[in-house]
């Protein structure tokens, strides 16, 4: 059901919310490259400008289109938001502008049922724990969360994303990173 959401999407806007140092830019870049290879000739990824600090809330915009993108301005009304840390829900207005029926990908240790959906589609997984289980150092979650994104959407093939992860991390535990994404894919709970 859920995966049908993006069957015919020609223009997708994803906003990534993480903390400085969590690797949100790398995650967005992996998705951007998979999208480009999959035939989306327009991909534009714009990180927060000038205010990045380790641990502070940061944001990255990713626009994916069938055509070249001329508008590089920040995303105002995302289709999807990816939240690296559930505590950001209280710290920043992460759902700002999210389209009605939009998707929230959330890394949280809490149960799916804990959250009220407000008309959005929610996908949750404890990526922090899953990543450790996959053999990654504690706190490395930017590859695992791609598994949740793949589970909740279907505009990109999961295999393509796994390939992208292994390529990006070819010198830094490629198998553990892709395993984190695979486990996350299996364990992600979605609903809306």
């Amino acid at each position: 059901m859920l995966s049908k959401t993006f069957m015919n999407k020609d223009f997708i806007e994803i906003r990534w919310h993480g903390r400085g140092g969590q690797g949100a830019i790398t995650a967005a870049k992996i998705v951007a490259e998979a999208a480009f290879i999959s035939g989306y000739s327009g991909v534009v990824m714009a990180p927060t400008f000038g205010t990045e600090r380790r641990g502070a809330p940061v944001m990255t915009s990713l626009k994916i289109s069938r055509h070249k993108i001329y508008d590089l301005s920040a995303i105002e009304t995302p289709d999807i938001i990816v939240v690296f840390d559930h505590l950001l829900l209280d710290e920043a207005d992460v759902t700002h502008g999210l389209k009605p029926g939009g998707i929230i990908i959330l890394n949280t240790p809490k149960a799916f049922e804990t959250y009220s959906l407000n008309g959005y589609i929610l996908a949750t997984a404890d990526i922090t724990a899953i990543s450790v289980e996959a053999g990654l150092p504690h706190g490395i979650i930017n590859t695992g969360i791609i598994g949740s994104l793949a589970k909740a959407t279907n505009f990109l093939k999961f295999d393509m994303l796994i390939k992208g992860i292994e390529e990006e991390f070819r010198t830094r535990n490629p198998e553990k990173n892709s395993l984190a994404a695979r486990i996350a894919y299996e364990r992600t709970v979605t609903g809306g």
Partner: peptide, 10 residues
């Protein structure tokens, strides 16, 4: 600056 220097595109 930033708009092009720090933005990723193909």
């Amino acid at each position: 600056g930033y708009i092009l220097s720090h933005t990723y595109m193909p």
